[in-house]
Amino acid sequence: MIHGIGTDVCDIRRIEATLQRRGDRFAEKVLGPNEIHVFRDRRAKAEKRGISYLATRFSAKEAFSKAIGLGMRMPMTWRACEILNERSGKPVVRLHGELADWFEARRLTAHVTVSDESEYAASFVVVEKNSTPE
């Protein structure tokens, strides 16, 4: 059964401007421990790739927060929710701490997709409630 659906469109130029104004502190606020490494690696290779990565993660976390119905209120925090990639490239949601406990207690599962073009990043999240305990 679907628990919630969230979507978000993010202007990559806005993320770039915020990063220029606030520096790496902005990325460190938004990205979790695994994501920050990917961001730095991509940015070192090509500035635009790093910025696009940050924008897709920002967008996906916004979409996830909408799908779970909390918005950016506890236990939902930027760093407690990571959008990582499987070896195949498929994006997946990985949760930490109180958010992971909250999510698991409700027997929820999340599915995420992200996309970006030159100026925009978009994300879509579907959160399902598992009908039987695992």
Rank of each mutant, 00 (worst) to 15 (best):
residue 19 L to D: 03
residue 10 C to D: 04
residue 110 A to D: 05
residue 89 G to D: 10
residue 6 G to S: 05
residue 12 I to T: 03
residue 68 I to G: 01
residue 39 F to K: 00
residue 14 R to G: 12
residue 49 R to Q: 11
residue 62 E to F: 02
residue 105 A to S: 15
residue 119 E to C: 13
residue 52 S to E: 13
residue 25 R to C: 04
residue 40 R to T: 04
residue 23 G to Q: 09
residue 54 L to K: 04
residue 42 R to E: 06
residue 52 S to Y: 06
residue 17 A to P: 05
residue 73 R to H: 14
residue 27 A to S: 11
residue 63 A to Y: 00
residue 65 S to N: 10
residue 28 E to I: 07
residue 51 I to Q: 00
residue 76 M to R: 02
residue 44 A to H: 09
residue 109 T to V: 15
residue 56 T to I: 09
residue 66 K to Y: 04
residue 66 K to G: 11
residue 40 R to H: 06
residue 43 R to A: 07
residue 65 S to L: 03
residue 64 F to M: 12
residue 17 A to H: 11
residue 42 R to G: 03
residue 133 P to V: 06
residue 97 G to I: 08
residue 20 Q to P: 07
residue 7 T to S: 09
residue 43 R to T: 07
residue 107 R to H: 15
residue 98 E to T: 14
residue 37 H to C: 05
residue 91 P to V: 06
residue 119 E to L: 10
residue 26 F to C: 10
residue 60 A to L: 06
residue 124 F to W: 14
residue 64 F to L: 15
residue 19 L to M: 10
residue 118 S to V: 13
residue 70 L to K: 13
residue 19 L to I: 06
residue 110 A to G: 12
residue 128 E to T: 12
residue 111 H to N: 13
residue 62 E to T: 10
residue 105 A to F: 04
residue 25 R to I: 12
residue 108 L to D: 03
residue 33 P to R: 15
residue 33 P to C: 09
residue 14 R to F: 03
residue 42 R to Q: 09
residue 83 I to K: 01
residue 39 F to M: 01
residue 71 G to Q: 13
residue 24 D to L: 07
residue 113 T to H: 01
